[in-house]
């Protein structure tokens, strides 16, 4: 059913201060599939997602134990040069946070940082990635406008394109539709279904119906623990655990 995994999490524990946020997480995330981390709010989904590219470094008082392997490298090893590894994972946040620059520069930012300077190359890439997220037609005449001038839905797609621009293998999405209207949400979901042919996508959500629509593989979390994980079919049709059952049936909210 699942061929090959791209991320291996082994014995991950995470504390913030003296709160135990993630408890002994062991899971493998399959390659080129859309994995959904599902669970009620406050169960540590987002924290787990951010541990995957060590953005937890940004928060004071976070302590992690355990290992997260990506391509044979332990991401959590403090000696690892994390900057390059982060490029392999594009991030899409809860609500869009365009960088404080033009639409064009939002896409080229990652490329420039990794040393690509040629104008023709950059312009081509901008068009390519904006087309990927079906934004090109809408913004091609105003690439120099500040990104904050776009609508929220457009901004979120721009952020996705920005994430794709550094050619990641994995897309990490943290409730990417929670700030969007239904139409824009639908657009993002459709993009994900298209993109999962080429990328591994890990998406956090607490919306059950969304998970049903898009997931190939589901990790169900509750109070910082993984209760159950398996293919979408397994989890939705035949959950083993009582808590999962309750959540799937909607008796738990």
């Amino acid at each position: 059913m699942i061929n090959g995994s791209i991320i291996n999490i082994e014995g991950l524990n995470l504390h913030i201060g003296n709160k135990h946020i993630l408890k002994d997480i062991n899971v493998k995330i399959p390659e080129k599939k859309l994995t959904v981390i599902l669970g009620p709010s406050g169960c540590g989904k987002t924290t787990l997602l951010k541990s995957l590219n060590r953005l937890t470094d940004l928060y004071p008082e976070v302590k992690t134990q355990g290992k997260i392997f990506n391509g044979g490298i332990d991401i959590l090893n403090p000696k690892i040069e994390i900057t390059e590894l982060r490029k392999k994972m594009g991030l899409l946040a809860q609500s869009p946070y365009p960088l404080p620059m033009s639409i064009y520069d939002n896409i080229t930012y990652g490329l420039r940082i990794s040393g690509r300077r040629k104008k023709r190359y950059l312009s081509k890439r901008v068009e390519y990635y904006l087309r990927q997220v079906s934004l090109w037609e809408e913004v091609k005449d105003r690439l120099k406008d500040p990104a904050s001038a776009l609508s929220i839905g457009q901004q979120q797609r721009l952020c996705l394109a920005r994430g794709l621009s550094v050619d990641p293998d994995i897309i990490l999405a943290d409730e990417p539709t929670s700030a969007l209207d239904p139409v824009s949400s639908r657009e993002i979901e459709e993009l994900f279904l298209k993109l999962k042919q080429r990328y591994t996508i890990v998406m956090v959500t607490h919306i059950l119906r969304q998970a049903r629509r898009v997931a190939d593989y589901v990790i169900f979390m509750y109070l910082g623990e993984i209760v159950e994980h398996g293919t979408a079919e397994q989890i939705f049709e035949n959950p083993q655990n009582q808590i999962t059952k309750a959540y799937i049936k909607g008796t738990y909210s």
């Binding site: 953005l55 940004l58 490029k87 594009g90 991030l91 609500s95 946070y97 960088l99 930012y109 990794s114």
Partner: peptide, 14 residues
Amino acid sequence: PIELSEASLSLGAT
């Protein structure tokens, strides 16, 4: 917002 830092870092910026 810290999300701006997150976005930039995950694009490979130091």
